[in-house]
Amino acid sequence: MLLLPGAEPFTHDGSSTGVLFCHGFTGTPQSLRAWAGHLAIRGMTVSLPLLPGHGTRWQDLQRTGWQDWYATVDRELNELHRRCEQVFVCGLSMGGALALRLAARRGQAVSGLALVNPAITFPRIQGYALPVLRHLLPTARGLISDIAKDGVRETGYERVPLHAAHSMRALFALVRAELPQVTQPLLVMHSRVDHVVPPSDSAAVLAGVSSVDTTERVLESSFHVATLDHDAERIFQETDAFITRLATRKTARDGT
């Protein structure tokens, strides 16, 4: 199956600090490649997988569910731990939900989280209709390319397969219930204006986790796909500083 341009997974072997990236629903690694590339240039070990059903055609996503997407990032987390002493997880949109579930379920295997516009809720009206609607209509209008910057496009599906959307809704419910189990340091960066995920999702994440070390950054100049937007460089720098601070603290604590 041919991949969409930019949908290829990305990996980089670097230091003993690993970073796992989780892209969003109907999106591809293209939306996070520059973010991952920045940390790779900084010398970190990076893994940016393509989630099952993504990056080809929407019909392929229709045959997958959250268990498939989560299994992929869980497997990549294990793989990074074979090469790294500590692993951080970064996520955009639904990728933020996957990252939060990894943190809740894997505990010390996740050293910290950096999230951009994390999604943990589903629009109420659409959510109520989805269990029935998904059997009547295969797809709805797509969610990609909510970007303020002129001339920039996100690679992904123009249609949302409703069976997969129903599965994503179930994932969000699980993640909301598991938020108190998240204790790791947390960096949440969210756009002031987002036409896909409301900023209240980021507020709910920050209010729901048990993390003591939390940082919130508001992105004033970007829409949902902020990693490709005006605030991209700020996201890269904030993430670099966040991971470096925590990695340095661990090194000092270990006495190495």
Rank of each mutant, 00 (worst) to 15 (best):
M1W: 04
L2H: 11
L2Q: 14
L3E: 11
L4I: 08
G6P: 04
G6I: 05
E8G: 07
E8W: 05
E8P: 01
G14D: 12
S16E: 14
S16D: 15
T17R: 13
T17N: 15
F21P: 02
C22Y: 07
F25M: 04
G27E: 02
T28F: 01
T28C: 00
S31V: 15
L32I: 04
L32K: 00
L32R: 00
R33P: 00
W35K: 00
W35Y: 10
A40P: 11
I41K: 13
R42N: 14
M44D: 10
T45W: 04
H54K: 06
H54N: 10
T56C: 09
R57C: 08
R57K: 13
W58A: 11
Q59H: 08
Q59W: 06
D60Q: 14
D60R: 15
L61I: 11
Q62N: 07
G65Q: 10
G65V: 10
W66K: 04
W66Q: 05
Y70D: 01
V73W: 07
V73I: 11
R75T: 14
E76R: 15
E76L: 10
N78K: 12
L80I: 08
R82C: 09
E85W: 03
Q86D: 14
F88R: 09
V89K: 08
V89I: 14
C90N: 04
M94D: 02
M94Y: 01
A97I: 09
A97T: 06
L102D: 08
L102M: 12
L102N: 09
A104S: 12
R105D: 13
R105Y: 03
S111I: 12
L115Y: 00
N117Y: 08
P118K: 09
F122S: 02
F122E: 02
P123Q: 01
Q126A: 10
P131W: 07
V132S: 11
R134Y: 00
R134F: 04
H135S: 04
L136C: 12
L137Y: 04
T139Q: 03
T139H: 08
L143I: 06
L143A: 02
I144H: 03
S145L: 05
I147A: 01
K149F: 02
D150Q: 15
G151L: 09
G151I: 07
V152C: 10
E154H: 06
L162D: 01
A164L: 05
A164D: 10
A165R: 00
A165H: 05
S167N: 10
R169H: 07
A170K: 10
L171T: 06
L171Q: 11
F172E: 05
R176A: 12
L179M: 02
Q181N: 13
Q181A: 15
T183K: 14
T183I: 08
Q184H: 11
S191L: 06
R192Q: 15
V193L: 13
S202C: 03
A204M: 12
V205T: 03
V205L: 01
L206P: 00
A207R: 04
G208P: 00
V209D: 01
S210V: 02
V212I: 10
D213L: 03
D213F: 08
E216C: 09
E216S: 14
R217I: 15
S221H: 15
S222L: 05
F223K: 10
H224D: 06
A232W: 02
A232L: 06
E233M: 14
Q237S: 11
T244H: 13
T244C: 14
T244Y: 08
A247Q: 08
T248F: 07
K250E: 15
K250M: 14
T251Y: 06
G255H: 05
G255D: 02
